[in-house]
Design a protein around this nucleic acid. Structure first.
Lengths: 234, 234
DNA sequence: TTGGATCAGTGGCTCATCCACTTCGGATGA
DNA sequence: TCATCCGAAGTGGATGAGCCACTGATCCAA
């Protein structure tokens, strides 16, 4: 069994979640100013220092902007946010927001980007990378349970991104995978057993190892479409 | 004139930069533990509170991970970082690191993702979006100077992403544009005058407005390849 | 061998206080 | 009348001391 790490939200984690929801739910609309830190801290029953830590994180995510002497204004995340916002957005969307289009859109991008990455990986992978990929593929099929298979599967995706020979794709895939994990922990979605997951993934890995970009692209599209169906249940 | 925003790094901004460089330069290798916050703060001559704010930002970016009772460990950004790291990475790479491959890789992704977005935009754009796109296009060519043209051009890219009908692409383009701006402010790279920039961009906008996905993809590839040549000087 | 207690080291969080920046309106002087 | 200056109010930035909570290692007792 994979030991579940226990969530254990710290105070500022909770604060971040709360503020994030308030912002995304338009309680504080884009362009408006948040209440002064002192007031906000008081209303949440925390110190200004802790509140500030939370605000720093929201600012880093591109949800708000704080200016000395002026205040903290809410930004339009569609203009200022990056893919690192996805976990936050999905958490919110699957919570009360009930905007499952986000889910669809993440999978859509995953599919299109995944196809590009697969094609690149087939074109650029080294012999060593092909070997490592095959080894990891074996680890997927021989995983003891769905949890382990899922982890091994994610590792295959990382290796594909690495084989694509462009580190930006690695970063991008990291964000998308993080969004996946978020969904997964919220859903506790059912996953296929290791053997089946391996069978779905195998053609993709084979094509990449064989160095066939077109076949890899096609295999990736098929694989990701199937994954999407499984996770979205459609 | 566009009012220059004034850099004005705050103390924690400076701290973040310093720590980020120390981490990326492998002064603290991935997997190692940072010194205790009290020591680190003392060694940088700041309060523990300020240092903590900086660490929170690095943690949010996926560069380090802080655990209560244990310490702060350095993560491998290629495994845990997202595209939001790009500005940081470029700043570091163009500074002392001198790893211009990052620049190349960002442009490469921009080119491939841009092609996908353009094709999607052509397929999904509404009549209103086409009109707005054309209007913004006019704003590019009639910009008073290179700065204004650059801003208007970025706006076109945002609108293309919005027209693609998938908000995840918007977030992704945000990150890539932010990386661009970072490069630009570090380079003070020369930009073509508005008319020329407009001429390069026009075929792409036309194809998207005409609703021709394949033409849009081709136009986007040509446009982005040219942009890359201009900015990288090759 | 196991289980529990202890302790040192580390981050989490608070509090009180002062500094620095922005804004705006009123006083001042041409 | 108008422009300019200046200062008060309000806001975030930063400090430093202090206490609490968690982790991991060690050691002792069952």
């Amino acid at each position: 069994m994979t030991t579940s790490p226990i969530a254990h939200d710290s105070l500022v984690d909770a604060l971040v979640n709360r503020l994030r929801d308030d912002v995304l739910a338009r309680r504080y609309p884009a362009g408006s100013r948040l209440p002064p830190e002192r007031d906000l801290a008081a209303s949440y029953g925390v110190t200004r220092t802790s509140l500030k830590h939370a605000l720093v994180r929201l600012a880093q995510a591109g949800l708000v902007e704080t200016r000395h002497g002026v205040g903290t204004v809410v930004l339009d995340y569609r203009r200022h946010g990056g893919p690192d916002l996805l976990p936050m957005l999905l958490t919110h969307a699957l919570g009360d927001g009930a905007d499952d289009r986000w889910l669809t859109e993440v999978f859509e991008v995953r599919q299109e980007v995944g196809a590009v990455v697969a094609a690149r990986a087939a074109a650029h992978r080294s012999a060593d990378q092909a070997d490592a990929l095959r080894a990891q593929m074996a680890a997927v099929t021989s995983a003891r349970d769905a949890d382990a298979a899922q982890l091994a599967e994610a590792e295959v995706h990382r290796m594909l991104a690495a084989a694509a020979g462009n580190r930006v794709y690695e970063l991008l895939v990291n964000s998308l995978l993080k969004a996946y994990l978020e969904v997964r922990s919220l859903f506790r979605a059912p996953f296929a057993d290791p053997a089946v997951a391996g069978a779905r993934l195998a053609p993709l890995v084979d094509a990449v190892c064989a160095g066939a970009p077109d076949a890899a692209r096609t295999a990736a599209e098929a694989y990701l479409a199937r994954t999407r169906e499984l996770m979205l249940g459609r």
